[in-house]
């Protein structure tokens, strides 16, 4: 089965233990959510999964291969990551930033860096359109708002794992691809949050595995298929969203007061009590 599994994963930074003995699995074709308070170890776990940091102990089983032995260039074709914060001092255009992601799929030799690929612009334009960046394509990333900049990075990550084999009409087949997102929605306006959430759902149906860290409970409840709840660097709860997203579990895991709100369709929603 296409999945990513953590076995006894620990991460120590100096004296501080940021993650201890985490066992969890993330399943392809699903939205896998990581919840937790500030400092619970969410971003750390995401960095370990993305292989930008090495665990102090434990193993990550990346689609039935040890993540440790998987070379970075190969991994880059399977998963893309959007970080929580991103800075940029260089005057790239949005189009150039997004094409950095797409170029990863072309191979790494220098000669190829200067070759023109016929479908490249078609695919690139399609991704820009999907992410609602069509009008911003030629703008400098230095002049974007926080939300626009984030969208450009989402598009860049998407381009990195965009399936190139399909023709433009077909629905892309994302099987074997993963998207790791750290608070992707924080800077986005409501419309674009909605837009991306529904896109993510569609792509998950096409096989994309999503692992995301979010703080937004309404979003979490509507989007998540599976939830991993972290508390103080340890797994507090893990499982299907229906089982984990319960009032008492969340109240204890996030140490906050929740209220149950009934929606117009009869379903209930957990919301923070202010």
């Amino acid at each position: 089965m296409d999945a990513i599994k953590c076995h006894n994963l620990s991460f120590q930074q100096g004296e501080k233990c940021l993650l201890s003995r985490v066992n969890a699995s993330f399943i392809a074709g699903k939205v896998n959510l990581i919840l937790g308070q500030n400092g619970a170890g969410k971003s750390t776990l995401l960095k370990l999964l993305a292989k930008s940091q090495q665990p102090s102990s434990g193993v990550i089983d990346w689609r039935e291969q040890d993540l440790q032995t998987l070379p970075l260039p190969e991994l880059a074709l399977q998963r893309a990551v959007v970080e929580q914060q991103q800075t940029m001092q260089f005057d790239f255009s949005v189009r150039q930033l997004v094409s950095l992601g797409l170029e990863i799929q072309l191979g790494s030799e220098l000669v190829k860096a200067y070759q023109h690929v016929a479908d490249f612009d078609v695919v690139l334009n399609r991704i820009l359109q999907i992410c609602d960046l069509g009008d911003l394509a030629e703008r400098s990333v230095l002049n974007l708002s926080g939300g626009e900049f984030k969208r450009a990075h989402l598009a860049r990550a998407l381009a990195q794992i965009w399936p190139l084999q399909q023709t433009a009409q077909e629905q892309p087949d994302f099987s074997g691809k993963w998207l790791l997102l750290d608070e992707w929605n924080a800077a986005l306006d409501m419309r674009h949050q909605q837009c991306f959430a529904s896109l993510l759902k569609t792509w998950c149906a096409q096989g994309l595995g999503v692992i995301m860290v979010v703080h937004d409970l309404p979003l979490a409840q509507q989007l998540a298929d599976r939830v991993l709840l972290l508390k103080d660097g340890q797994v507090f709860a893990e499982g299907d969203s229906q089982t984990v997203l319960q009032k008492t579990t969340l109240e204890n895991g996030l140490q906050m007061q929740l209220q149950i709100v009934e929606q117009s369709d009869g379903k209930t929603m957990l919301l923070p009590k202010f």
Binding site: K47, A50, K51, S52, L72, P73, E74, L75, A76, L77, R79, A80, V81, E83, Q86, T87, M88, Q89, F90, L97, L100, G101, E103, I104, S108, L110, A113, A157, Q160
Partner: peptide
């Protein structure tokens, strides 16, 4: 040159794009 393009996004981002 391609590593440079990736590296200016940040060290982690360059890793995510597959660069050493």
């Amino acid at each position: 040159v391609r590593s440079m393009n990736a590296f200016v996004l940040g060290e982690h981002s360059a890793t995510y794009l597959g660069f050493d």
